[in-house]
Amino acid sequence: MEKQLMRIGISLPGDLLENFDDIIMERGYSSRSEGIRDAIRTYNQHYEWMQEIQGRRAATISLVYDCSKKGVSNALATIQHDYTDLINSSVRFHIETESCFEVIILDGEGEQIVELAEKILSLKGVKNLKLTTIPKTEK
């Protein structure tokens, strides 16, 4: 059975596309399409990994966001207030004039940790998010 290829169109900021083009050239991809297919496969695998996080976990969420974008800081605070039972600590600092780096340290049920990470990741202005979890053993 032959796979049907679908054609899509996307809009990207110029600097993001230039950076992507540089990376796919360095990595030896034959085309943008091949690079995008690989990126989508990686994104899908990451999503599937996140769906498998269950049970008691210790975790960190590290994120970079545009703190000059109207409303993003307040939205982050509101979301975090909804998960105070999970959050042990957080630290935030400016890495550039318009960019903040924040690390949130968590302890709780994996499903809730993933839910929090996904809510933060979906905010407009969040540039990057990394979730790290480890199972928590009960003594």
Rank of each mutant, 00 (worst) to 15 (best):
L76K: 00
E98I: 12
V72P: 02
A58F: 07
E34Y: 07
V103T: 15
M50Y: 10
A77E: 04
T84S: 13
I24L: 02
R57Y: 09
G35M: 05
Q4M: 01
A77K: 00
R56I: 02
S30Q: 15
N19P: 02
T97K: 09
C67D: 00
G28E: 04
K3W: 00
E26Y: 06
G55M: 08
I24P: 03
S99L: 00
R41F: 06
Q54I: 07
E118K: 08
E2H: 06
H94Y: 06
A58W: 02
G110F: 05
H94M: 01
K127S: 03
S90Y: 13
T132Y: 04
S30C: 09
Y29S: 09
L131S: 05
S33H: 01
K136T: 04
M1Y: 04
A77H: 01
N44E: 12
C67Q: 02
L129P: 11
S11E: 08
D15L: 06
Y29A: 04
R37G: 03
F101N: 06
V91F: 12
N44R: 13
T84M: 13
D22A: 14
F20H: 00
D66L: 11
E48A: 13
E48H: 11
G110I: 10
R32V: 11
R56N: 06
T132M: 12
L5Y: 03
D82H: 12
S31C: 15
S31K: 10
F93G: 02
D15R: 04
K139V: 13
T137N: 11
N19F: 01
N88Q: 12
L129S: 09
I36V: 15
T97S: 03
V91C: 09
C100H: 00
I8K: 01
K124F: 04
C67N: 02
E52K: 15
D21Y: 03
Y65S: 03
T42H: 12
S11L: 09
I87R: 01
D22L: 14
G14F: 04
C100P: 00
E111N: 12
M25D: 12
V64K: 03
Y83F: 15
T60L: 14
L5N: 01
L86Y: 05
I61A: 12
K3V: 05
G71V: 09
H94L: 10
Y43G: 05
Y83V: 13
E115T: 14
R41Q: 06
E26K: 15
I120Q: 03
I104G: 10
V114G: 11
W49D: 05
I10N: 00
S99G: 05
S11T: 07
